[in-house]
């Protein structure tokens, strides 16, 4: 029951959704719509599970005073702080336990949860990703060493695309006569993006698409069972 029933549920749900595409009438059309809402609700609980799991893992690290445990206290405090503000005064147009908090929102310019989101979370996120600009430079050095035809192609495509999207690129080839306009760097960049890059992306999409279709069939038919875990 612990293994067979989940397999049966997966098969039934998967088959209903596939059939509903070909027979969009009662009961399949209705069932597939309802199943998609169920999916959304259960996924919501799965997200909560992720956050609670993070909470549990951090508590364990603090309890056993693992290396750098003090920083995990900061994680927990900021998590609790954010959740508390969200529950008390809500976010956006949604009211919290204490309503919309007009007075506090008036004083802060935002609801407290949104204040934290705009003034701390967004800055942290943008800086964290901008930090990668420095590391991507060293990654580029390693990736772009032109040893083979493949790495040279990678280098040429990246450089041309980057130059074509900057004013420097426009300046470099802006003097070209009309008959050679196709060599103007923004045009070269556009050509690369429209044709060879699309071809490569398309091949990846078709390959990955076929792989996903195969995996989905294996899961629905119960051949692939790794999601049930060990035992």
């Amino acid at each position: 029951m612990k293994r067979k029933l989940p397999l049966l549920i997966t098969f039934t749900v998967g088959i209903i959704l596939i059939i509903s595409e070909f027979i969009p009438h009662k009961p399949f059309g209705q069932l597939s719509g309802e199943l998609e809402i169920w999916f959304l609700i259960i996924s919501g609980f799965a997200i909560l599970l992720g956050q609670l799991s993070l909470f549990k893992v951090n508590i364990i690290k603090i309890k056993f005073k693992q290396r750098d445990w003090q920083f995990y206290v900061v994680t927990l405090l900021s998590f609790i702080f954010m959740v508390t503000l969200g529950f008390l005064w809500g976010t956006g147009n949604s009211a919290g336990i204490l309503g919309h908090g007009e007075s506090i929102s008036g004083a802060m310019g935002y609801k407290p949860f949104d204040f934290l989101f705009h003034n701390v979370y967004q800055h942290l996120q943008a800086t964290m990703f901008s930090l990668l600009a420095f590391f991507i430079a060293s990654a580029a050095y390693r990736a772009f060493i032109g040893r083979t035809v493949e790495s040279n192609l990678l280098l040429a495509a990246a450089v041309l695309v980057m130059l074509g999207n900057t004013t420097f690129g426009v300046l470099l080839t802006g003097w070209l006569p009309d008959s050679l306009k196709f060599l103007h760097l923004p045009n070269v960049s556009e050509f690369i993006m429209t044709f060879p890059t699309t071809a490569g992306q398309r091949a990846i999409m078709i390959g990955a698409g076929l792989g996903i279709i195969g995996s989905s069939l294996r899961i629905i038919l119960g051949i692939e069972r790794s999601y049930l875990g060990g035992e």
Binding site: Q51, T75, F117
Partner: peptide, 15 residues
């Protein structure tokens, strides 16, 4: 760590 905590808190409330 503040980023991790706020991020988790944000998605918790959003969900």
């Amino acid at each position: 760590q503040i980023f991790v905590g706020l991020s988790a808190g944000y998605w918790f409330v959003y969900t």
